[in-house]
């Protein structure tokens, strides 16, 4: 089994069409367990595309993506979904919390889908996660009753619900003020270092990227600096 949480080999993603568009090209990229990696680059450089490939939301046109040593190119859509559910946590620029549900329920959803814990254990874990992220008193509030930073922290709690070894974040601080963004980034660093998770964060903010262990810079779909 590979020592890397994520490993890509010569990954290329091309959008077919009369004029094919290459999103990323020949990406060789590895993330070790407990490593916090920031992916930077200008708009349209392929940062998010790379993240979606790592998160099995998209399939490479060429090359391979391995998650914890398991090669993923032959997985069916349902198998990829199962892998996402168990091993990957996503945080996006927009929180994507389900607006009808409370923070607590939003965090419970991935656990209920995975169906490994009983109802009481699911409730307890969701509460603990929210309390860890200092959202204990906001457990029963719906997303529209929370601030931007609070919503994003609920989204992080939801991404951690099934205790995934890998956390992927796409511009998670894009809608946050500088102070809150700093807090969120520090949280990611903690998750990597204290909980031994691999964290890959896409950001265009070079200042925040400096908080990561490693910085990968993309230009025109190619890694130019690692």
């Amino acid at each position: 089994m590979s020592a890397f949480a994520i490993e890509t080999r010569k990954v290329t993603r091309e959008l077919p069409g009369p004029v094919p568009v290459t999103l990323v090209r020949d990406i060789d990229f590895r993330v070790a367990p407990g490593e916090f990696v920031a992916v930077t680059g200008p708009s349209g450089s392929g940062k998010s595309s790379l993240l979606y490939l790592l998160g099995l939301l998209d399939r490479p046109s060429a090359g391979t993506v391995a998650i914890q040593g398991a090669e993923t190119s032959n997985l069916s859509p349902d198998q990829a979904a199962a892998l996402r559910l168990e091993r990957l946590g996503f945080v996006f620029q927009f929180h994507f919390l389900l607006p009808e549900f409370t923070s607590q329920t939003n965090v419970e959803i991935p656990m209920r889908r995975l169906d490994r814990l009983d109802d009481r254990a699911i409730r307890r874990r969701a509460t603990e996660l929210l309390e860890t992220l200092e959202l204990g008193e906001h457990r029963h509030k719906r997303p529209d009753q929370l601030s931007g930073g609070q919503r994003q922290r609920v989204a992080i709690a939801r991404a951690l619900a099934n205790d995934p070894p890998i956390l992927l974040a796409d511009e998670p601080t894009g809608n946050l003020d500088t102070h809150t963004a700093q807090i969120v980034f520090e949280l990611f660093r903690d998750l990597a270092h204290r909980q031994n998770r691999s964290v890959v964060v896409v950001t265009h903010d070079t200042h925040l990227a400096e908080l990561a262990d490693r910085r990968v810079h993309l230009v025109d779909g190619v890694i130019v600096d690692d």
Partner: peptide
Amino acid sequence: RDIGILKSMGFR
């Protein structure tokens, strides 16, 4: 959007 996030979470 909710469908997108549910799928990214692992809903089939």
